[in-house]
Design a protein around this nucleic acid. Structure first.
Lengths: 156, 156
DNA sequence: TTTAATCCCTATTAATTTACTAGGGTTTAA
DNA sequence: TTAAACCCTAGTAAATTAATAGGGATTAAA
């Protein structure tokens, strides 16, 4: 039940843009350096975020990425689903897509469990906005205070 | 973010015992046939369930497995954690073990997200008892009625 | 007492997925 | 014109998952 590096690195990348990009485009090479992720791999992750409308890209020299909307309008759920696909514990059309119907759904008992897990995950991540993480980061930075060496957001 | 077959098959196996074993030990070969899972693989899964105290085994001829406790005292959370390990979205001691502390936790912002996901998953599965699934199964069987061919619990 | 049914254990392999590298192409500000 | 940037996709290495394989121990019943 682990998130892959896509979700973990990708969320860090968006948070990096939210924190460091004050209406300025941030080059991927800068994010890559701060977050210690290779540019090539980050490119693949940010491509998903661009296609799903979380970030916008600016091509050419001096280009980079900016948030597509204000941080308080972007939920962590939207970010993670862009990167990971649906956040469901099982591959079942009936659970992952409200309109679909599973072929042997009539005798499937455990779907009751999977649906509850799926809903609780989505509710949790949809309730956290990117701006919440930005606030949290500023608070944490202020507390860290004179620790000059580590000023980027870190992850577990 | 998918559960592995360990969790999915294993939950089906326990439910099979809960439904079909009325104080009688159920042989693994029977579960394997009904659930269409190989005996050898199922053995590995049920070993985890035995070690964590979800089922008891009875060795020798006419042996098999029984629930270690009444179905209303066994939560789906306990079953899934026995099979999958912790249900956390990340590998972080601070999130998965209340007493531990993560080395760079002071600057880790995303742990806020992982903790909320982790708690919501655990709350969801701890709130479902095995007996709830047994009840659900009986209801579903009754509704299926004269469909004689598929009488075992199926999964998505 | 023998036999067959059953659980018990662990090593190995096959399949799949994840994580990443590599490298060529396009756009655009300076 | 050039260099800094994004854009795209094919390939590979590493890790994990899923399963197979097979020998051992226990015990009810013939």
């Amino acid at each position: 039940m682990r998130l892959s590096t896509k979700g973990r690195y990708g969320l860090r990348a968006v948070l990096d843009i939210a924190i460091n990009g004050n209406d300025e485009a941030i080059a991927l090479s800068q994010i890559a350096e701060r977050q210690e992720i290779s540019v090539n791999y980050l490119e693949q992750l940010i491509a998903k975020l661009r296609k799903s409308g979380v970030v916008n890209s600016i091509r050419g020299a001096q280009g980079g990425y900016i948030l597509a909307r204000p941080a308080h309008d972007i939920s962590v759920g939207e970010i993670l689903r862009s990167l990971e696909g649906d956040l469901s514990p099982v591959e079942c059309s009936e659970i992952n897509d409200a309109d679909a119907e599973c072929s042997h759904s009539d005798l499937c008992v455990t779907k009751y469990v999977w649906k509850r897990i799926s809903d609780s995950i989505n509710d949790a991540v949809d309730g956290i906005m990117l701006s919440d993480l930005v606030d949290e980061s500023r608070k944490v930075q202020a507390e860290a205070g004179n620790n000059q060496e580590k000023r980027t957001n870190q992850t577990c």
